[in-house]
Design a protein around this nucleic acid. Structure first.
Length: 485
RNA sequence: GCCCCCAUCGUCUAGUGGCCUAGGAUACUGGGUUUUCAUCUCAGCGGCAGGGGUUCGAAUCCCCUUGGGGGUACCA
């Protein structure tokens, strides 16, 4: 079997889209599974929109998810350079060749003329495609047009007689296109920079890419690229077109399509764990053989295969991501979660760097159970800081005023005072014993106590709450409750 | 408009002609655990888009319809 070489080829034109990173992930998984090479190439031929800082964004998000590339920008390799704008002279060789062999030609039509052409075609109910006006220009005509000072683009000559162009797709099977729907497309823009459909072919060939795994939005462009491969006498790589990721309204995932975030950075900033996002994304369009769904990256690589990639598009279900991320938050080492949580807590005004690490650990551990993502921790931790605030003061006071509640709170004060350690286990048994010693049931014991200590009707385990608050603050809060009776 | 792709619970999916009374996950609902919430656990709800074929037999194969998506650029 020949060597597997795949590439992820994003444009540095902005934040990296969740659908794009999923493409990167599948390329990565395939490369790792097949012991192949994963390449990162930057397609920066759109000079209007490309910017250097966006390349850094790509690096950052890929690093965050652990999608390390074996070859490409930053790390180098034998097939560089890996930025298209640094490969211009490489393209030139093949452009000249096509021109020489008259497989391509210069076109002097202005954008305005083209617009007009398309408009009238549309009006006549025809498919908007280039008419081939400049296809057979004589040398004289060409010189005249150049004398006019007209700029030119280079167009690829698509076949004149109808024939079938078949994309042999690993996911979709054989997809046939008629050459009739392909016009003489531009391969070099007037500024001399090649277009995507041309540069991608040259690069994939020169970089010896074995499998082109990319989004389905590229499927319709593939016949054009196949024409270029054929024009240059090259074999095509294998193609695999991944279905799209949709928003909850089933339209292409975008800022407007529901509650899901579109950019990887947004998930990172909200405190999603990279392993969780990676695990979730791997299940969007691919499924393992068994019923299990929670996997480490290594396990996914082990099980991955293109054959099990799904053809239909997938809605990005944030609810399920949240569940999975919560699972990872609960299962992770506590110090990992503490380290992740600290910045969010600090931002919310809880600067815990100088606090006892054991205490911080208990704090984070106590609230992690209910988190979907780390950014939520600030709200969860709120009950432990400042004055206790009652959610519904009237109802709380009513609860305090019930018979025997004063006895409960007074007794608790004494027992907390008498605690030898703040070990949650010790507190737990103390609470149990205290309740037994008193003439009240669980509801009358725990409920008012929770109100007194946290101000809320629900929350983390009370023994943890007491351990976190400490003796002094717990008693202070019990006193406050007692004063309201 | 034209071209291409897709179609199983709300959502992610398993399923490649009989193993399907369609399986798992999430979400939702209800039990259990817990004083409570979350977690955990058990159970339930819920689907083959519609219509024609082919076949002894179809979620699975074919056709049409419908719906969704993508493309149709001097963007990638």
């Amino acid at each position: 079997m020949s060597e597997v070489r795949v590439r992820f080829a994003p444009s540095p034109t902005g934040q990296i889209h969740i659908g794009n990173i999923r493409t990167a992930l599948f390329n990565y998984l395939f490369a790792k599974k097949m012991d192949g090479t994963f390449i990162l190439r930057i397609e920066d031929t759109d000079r209007e929109r490309s910017a250097n800082e966006f390349e850094d964004v790509i690096h950052q998000e890929m690093n965050w998810l652990g999608l390390d590339w074996d070859e490409g920008v930053k790390v180098g390799g034998d097939f560089g350079p890996y930025r298209q704008m640094e490969r211009l002279d490489l393209y030139k060789e093949y452009i000249d060749k096509l021109l020489e062999e008259e497989r391509a030609y210069r076109c002097y039509c202005t954008p305005e003329e083209l617009d007009q052409m398309r408009a009238s075609q549309k009006k006549a109910g025809e498919a908007p495609r280039y008419t081939g006006k400049c296809r057979n220009l004589t040398d004289k005509e060409r010189i005249d047009l150049e004398k006019e000072g007209r700029e030119s683009v280079i167009r690829f000559k698509s076949p004149q007689e109808e024939r079938e162009i078949v994309v042999d797709d690993l996911i979709r099977g054989q997809v046939a296109f008629s050459s009739d729907v392909i016009d003489d497309f531009v391969i070099v823009k007037s500024d001399g920079i090649p277009t995507y459909n041309f540069a991608v072919v040259i690069d994939d060939h020169l970089m010896e890419i074995s499998h082109v795994i990319r989004g389905e939005d590229h499927l319709s462009n593939t016949p054009k690229q196949i024409l270029v491969y054929q024009g240059l006498g090259w074999d095509t790589p294998r193609f695999a077109h991944l279905s799209m990721i949709l928003g909850s309204d089933k339209s292409k995932l975008s800022k407007r399509s529901g509650e899901a975030y579109v950019f990887v950075s947004e998930y990172r900033k909200k405190g999603y764990l990279p392993q969780a996002l990676l695990n979730f994304l791997s299940l969007l369009g691919w499924s393992p053989e068994g019923d299990e769904e929670v996997f480490s990256k290594e396990e996914i690589i082990e099980q991955f295969s293109i054959e099990r990639v799904n053809k239909s598009s997938a809605v990005f279900d944030v609810e399920k991501l949240n569940w999975m991320n919560g699972l990872y938050i609960r299962d992770a080492q506590i110090d990992t979660i503490v380290q992740l949580a600290l910045p969010y807590l600090k931002e919310a005004g809880y600067d815990l760097e100088d606090e006892d690490p054991k205490w911080v650990e208990l704090l984070v551990d106590t609230v992690r159970g209910s988190l979907d993502y780390i950014a939520q921790i600030a709200d969860e931790v709120d009950i432990f800081f400042g004055e206790v605030e009652y959610d519904n003061k009237e109802k709380v006071v009513e609860t305090f005023k019930q018979k025997d509640v004063d006895l409960v709170l007074e007794t608790l004060k004494e027992r907390i005072e008498a605690l030898e350690t703040l070990d949650p286990a010790e507190i737990k048994s103390m609470l149990k014993k205290t309740m037994k010693d008193l003439p009240v049931g669980g509801r009358k014991f725990y409920h008012p106590t929770r109100f007194a200590l946290t101000g809320k009707g629900s929350g983390p385990e009370l023994y943890n709450v007491i351990a976190i608050l400490g003796k002094e603050e717990s008693i202070k809060r019990l006193d406050k409750a007692l004063s309201l009776i």
